[in-house]
Design a protein around this nucleic acid. Structure first.
Lengths: 217, 217
DNA sequence: CCTTGTGAAGTGGTTCACAGCT
DNA sequence: AGCTGTGAACCACTTCACAAGG
């Protein structure tokens, strides 16, 4: 398997943002394939996601030319190269802040480990919760977050607090050296340049769906 | 306030998809404004979200010309027109399928009502859970879902089940007449044309973040 | 013959720059 | 003087259409 770091860097710098967002979907499709299916075509993959086959081919071609003309793509190869491009063959320590129902669901989500993500800290400011265990991790007070981020080399922080606490937590995370934040709180957070945020809240998604519902034939 | 339906339809048909995705963010920013702030400029709004001011103006101009040159936008007007465009001034009955930690968090999420979304059904296939109450709603068996969708005029279905159940639930929802699905399960679901799906799962988002983490200067 | 990989054309989104109002 | 609204230029993404290759 091709792993030359210089080559990898080149590939990564040329990946359009939209392609990066679709790679996880391709990966999920590969996971859902019937056991024993060894190859698939761009047509097949496109149909599963509801995309144009040319787009799938273009996306995959950014990773290199790993298909076989007249045949298709070899499933295991493709999985490897997509994981490679996304960085899922690495190990990413993460923390989750706010251990309500949502935080608990995230902490227990076990698909995680196979994708390189590994929760190494759960934080909350509710004294009732601190000390409780979830999925083998003890809930710690938010005050200990900065030290934990540094000690445990955390690079991704997940915010699962109520909206009013999100900005403060974001600053705490960014200030502690976290470079990526996944924000589940229904509020827009502001972070220093260099920190990547993704908004993942329920209400944003529902509102987008609502738009496509009303007054349509 | 301008409510002519013909006019509204025209506005809606001309809204680019990306603009629709940003409107909820603008709305959240308005909510976070200090109480008493009565107007704001495109610059101010852009800075909060991390966008170019010209883009904010163009987005808002699709809704009509509601700004005042030399001054800015009136906060309450803007809120009204954005809500109007998204359809949040209507009432949208929704169901949630899969009442684990995540489903429970969604069911309890109370920002909902103010945005026109109203959970009218919670479903699960676990006999242990059926009959339990969450936020005033009784958890019902999935078998009763189609009848409930019809009876209660449900238009949005939220899938919060494990991945292996998602496709089946999606088909059940679509078959019952639901036109929009928000899928939290980490799998790609296939639905008939005319049904809108948004993927909202944790692992997709984390994988995108991972991409931007590795090997960057 | 079938399916990939890819220039070229087409579409859609963003940014610029400035005219138009207040 | 200041900020919106918007054509025009620019850039990014998607789709087409076909050459290349097993």
């Amino acid at each position: 398997m091709l792993l030359d770091p210089l080559y990898c860097a080149l590939v990564k710098d040329r990946l359009p943002g939209v392609t990066v967002q679709r790679l996880p979907l391709y990966l999920k499709c590969l996971d859902d394939l019937p056991a024993g299916q060894v190859q698939l075509s761009s047509d097949e993959l496109a149909a599963r996601i509801g995309l144009n086959a040319a787009m799938v081919r273009k996306d995959l071609s950014y990773l290199g030319s790993y298909g076989v003309r007249g045949v298709g793509y070899e499933v295991e190869h493709l999985r490897f190269y997509i994981r490679q491009a996304l960085g899922l063959n690495n190990e990413w320590p993460i923390v989750i802040v706010g251990i309500g129902n949502l935080g608990r669901a995230l902490a227990k989500f076990d698909r995680f480990s196979s994708e390189g993500f590994h929760a190494v800290g759960l934080f909350d400011n509710d004294l009732e919760k601190i000390g409780d265990q979830v999925n083998g991790l003890v809930i710690e007070p938010v005050e200990d977050l900065p030290a934990a981020v540094a000690d445990r080399s955390v690079v991704i922080g997940v915010i699962a607090t109520p909206a009013h606490a999100a900005q403060e937590v974001a600053e705490l995370l960014a200030g502690s050296g976290v470079r990526s934040i996944l924000n589940f709180a229904p509020t827009v957070i502001k972070v220093p340049a260099g920190v990547k945020v993704r908004q993942a809240d329920f209400s944003t998604e529902m509102q987008v769906l609502a738009f496509y519902l009303h007054d349509r034939p």
